[in-house]
């Protein structure tokens, strides 16, 4: 088992955004989290990526407790993520984004930089190599020298995924990877996600495009009003009454 949450809870002021969620992610599967708007999907993501701390409950990753671990440690331990609104270093190029993404794997410090030690050169070389490798994997070699402001929406989505991949995650969390791209591009992104899983990286994604989720995911968790209401294979989920009710009921717009 890769990641496990127990009774994970988050309150904002008086509002319970996430209520006692138990969940497990197995090694090298693709799991999806779905639910109506405001169901707590992003909150769940933000908790298991260490973006903000849980109010109660626990998170463990590879058997180690991560509940009180600071944000930046999550990437070092092997959890990478993307954001719903594509988040990139807007003042640099595609390649430079990936190079800085590899920073947590390098060791060079201030003195290495000042004296340009062999470690500094090794680290810079390794970063460039890794960045180039990921660039090829996500299919953006063509635009590597472009400032990120110049590339297409779909390319930016790929780059955001690449940025998470550079950190060499065991678990990759994707927050609506296909939001705002057209049908053809969605299929391309689904292929990329499949490819990532085939290299042995576990993928967990939030997605509104049901078709994509049903084709891609091995397992699905459904959240509604901050609580888990169902979990199972795509087939089980599509026949689950509570799920159908949640989507068709009061919080109609999904």
């Amino acid at each position: 088992m890769l990641l496990k949450t127990e009774a994970l809870t988050k309150n904002f002021g008086g509002l319970t955004a996430l209520n006692k969620v138990d969940f497990e992610i197995q090694e090298s599967e693709i799991v999806a989290i779905i639910g109506p708007n405001g169901a707590g999907k992003s909150t769940f993501f933000n908790l298991i990526s260490g973006y903000y701390p849980a109010c109660s409950g626990t998170i463990s990753f590879l058997g180690k407790d991560m509940t009180r671990t600071p944000t930046h440690e999550f990437a070092c331990r092997g959890i990478g993520r993307t954001f719903q609104t594509t988040n990139l270093f807007t003042d640099s190029t595609v390649l430079d984004n990936l190079i800085i993404g590899y920073r947590s794997k390098t060791k060079m410090g201030m003195l290495d930089a000042i004296f340009n030690t062999s470690r500094a050169r090794r680290d810079e070389g390794a970063s460039r190599e890794k960045a180039t490798e990921v660039l090829e994997f996500i299919g953006l070699t063509e635009v590597k020298g472009q400032p990120v402001g110049n590339i297409s929406q779909e390319a930016a989505k790929r780059l955001a995924i690449g940025l998470a991949l550079v950190t060499e995650p065991r678990l990759l969390l994707l927050d609506e990877p296909a939001a705002g791209v057209n049908h053809g591009e969605t299929n391309e992104l689904a292929k990329l996600i499949k490819k990532i899983q085939q290299t042995g990286t576990t993928v967990c994604l939030i997605e509104h495009k049901v078709q994509m989720v049903m084709n891609l995911a091995h397992r699905i968790m459904v959240l509604n009003y901050g609580s888990k209401i169902a979990e199972g294979t795509p087939k089980e989920i599509s026949n689950n009454e509570r799920v159908i009710e949640a989507y068709l009921g009061g919080t109609a717009h999904a």
């Binding site: 990526s49 944000t71 070092c76 800085i100």
Partner: peptide, 8 residues
């Protein structure tokens, strides 16, 4: 926030 997410 992005830097922290990348493990920096």
């Amino acid at each position: 926030e992005l830097a922290a997410t990348l493990g920096i």
